[in-house]
Design a binder for these strands. Structure first.
Lengths: 118, 118
DNA sequence: TGTTCGTATGAGCATGTGTTCATATGTACA
DNA sequence: TGTACATATGAACACATGCTCATACGAACA
């Protein structure tokens, strides 16, 4: 990178740079986006999300069927809840979780589609 | 969670648990999926991906327009390249990067759609 | 109200991750 | 071949993150 801030002796990509500078997302949108995806970026959470994709479940059932500790599941559900990827309803002592959003499903499906090469 | 491994005095969610146990994704698929999404889960990489969504760019232009160090960009591009989210072509000294895959765009769009509440 | 069961939460720890700094690689061109 | 520029890479460090363990909260029910 040269002193004028673009490659090449005369900054031959100035237009590209200006265009990008003009159109980058605001910082808070960038952070929201990254936060949103980060939640998908953990094996445990993917397992949970996929389980909820199959059916609504309570904490205990998730822990049992995925062979995870209740605490680990609860911690992760908190994250998933905070980022609005799952919703819940209470029925007595039991709390049932389910996917909150159509986008969650679509994102999951795009991911699966990507890793299976088509 | 009770000794028989499901909630309630008599394990009243057995069917749900069996169903999930039968249909969970294999561990390697889970990991691939998580890995795939994890890459989207960082502000810097989102910025880069979004810039490449706007146009093909060389390393220097990315660094300049996003106000990042050349080294940071290069490191992140390596990650993006390794996970096949971007591709590149060399032209003399300059290396041009671009998005590799339709899924990348769709995932980004789903994410944007999610954070803007519709 | 005391007990039991389901869930939530905080502290602490081990591991992972992104950045910077320094330096290496690679290409063009005099 | 030597120099300049574009990019890549490795080490080191600061910070984030996910788990476990212990414990707290909350609802039902005797």
């Amino acid at each position: 990178m040269t002193k004028n801030g673009s490659c090449g002796p005369h900054g031959f990509h100035k237009k590209t740079i200006e265009n990008v500078k003009k159109n980058v997302l605001k910082d808070d949108k960038i952070n929201d986006l990254a936060m949103f995806f980060k939640v998908f970026g953990d094996p445990t959470r993917i397992k949970i999300l996929y389980a909820l994709y199959l059916s609504e479940m309570c904490v205990c059932d998730i822990a049992t069927s995925l062979e995870l500790s209740q605490s680990a599941v609860s911690h992760q559900l908190r994250t998933l809840k905070d980022t609005r990827l799952v919703k819940f309803r209470r029925e007595g002592k039991v709390v049932y979780y389910s996917l909150d959003d159509e986008h969650v499903i679509k994102v999951l499906e795009q991911g699966i589609s990507h890793i299976t090469h088509n």
